[in-house]
């Protein structure tokens, strides 16, 4: 792809699902505006009826940055991540979509490298990976690292997905590609992230990777219990027989 001036008329819609992220959403919006200076973008916040006043903060942020740059597309109650993305996608006006977590484990300073990689390669999807040089994780104990590595080796051996980090969710998509792939995805949670990338890979879309770091600020709270591991294995089996 020819690299045009700046970003060649591309617009990026950044979808951030939130639930009780009143402080983090303010920080992340500030950091996005700090790191994406010469880029046409909008931030679509899909809030699932947070009781902590997240939506109040978003309205204050709209006063600072403009209602055309920050879109609040709330839903009445907690309805899950997968549907949050499709909901945000309906309101996206860009030709590219970025999906990131609101809890600051995904730092907006990596957004320019996603955009640059896409412009250089013309990829349909650019996915952030924690497991290559320049990437990394902070705040995981040994158990968490062990399950992560085990899950990754299992998925790589069984699925041959062609990407090194399947469960990370910091990604940039061509909007049309995300719309097509997301409509065939049925899983939830971790498995949902894996399902999107595996289905896209099977359909032959060009996927590139950029290194990202992942800072887990919820120290000690291992989000991977027994039920998550069982869910992951079920998801793996599901992807084996359906993709």
């Amino acid at each position: 792809m020819e690299e045009q001036h700046k970003n060649g008329g591309n617009k990026y819609s950044i979808i951030v699902p939130t639930y009780n992220e009143r402080l983090n959403i303010a920080l992340i919006v500030f950091l996005i505006f700090k790191h994406l200076r010469d880029v046409d973008f909008e931030i679509i916040i899909v809030d699932d009826g947070s009781p902590d006043g997240t939506q109040e903060i978003v309205k204050q942020l709209q006063q600072v940055y403009g209602e055309d740059r920050i879109l609040l597309r709330a839903r009445p109650k907690k309805l899950g991540l997968g549907t949050a993305y499709s909901h945000g996608l309906k309101h996206a006006s860009g030709n590219f979509v970025v999906i990131m977590d609101a809890d600051l484990s995904h730092h907006p300073k990596y957004l320019p490298s996603f955009i640059k990689k896409q412009l250089e390669t013309g990829a349909s999807i650019v996915t952030g990976t924690r497991y290559v040089k320049g990437g990394g994780v902070h705040g995981w104990n040994l158990m968490r690292k062990l399950t992560s590595r085990g899950a990754n080796v299992l998925a790589q051996t069984l699925l041959w997905p062609g990407v090194s980090d399947l469960t990370g969710s910091f990604r940039l998509y061509k909007k049309s590609v995300l719309e097509e792939v997301i409509s065939s995805c049925v899983s939830k949670g971790y498995v949902f992230q894996m399902e999107i990338i595996v289905r896209a890979s099977r359909k032959g879309y060009h996927i590139e990777e950029v290194p990202i770091t992942f800072v887990d600020r919820l120290f000690g709270s291992s989000k991977l219990g027994g039920s998550e591991i069982v869910g992951y294995l079920k998801g793996l089996a599901y992807l084996l027989v359906t993709t």
Partner: peptide
């Protein structure tokens, strides 16, 4: 070889 990034925190 698990890549960690304490400086990022």
């Amino acid at each position: 070889q698990f890549p960690t990034c304490p400086q990022e925190a």
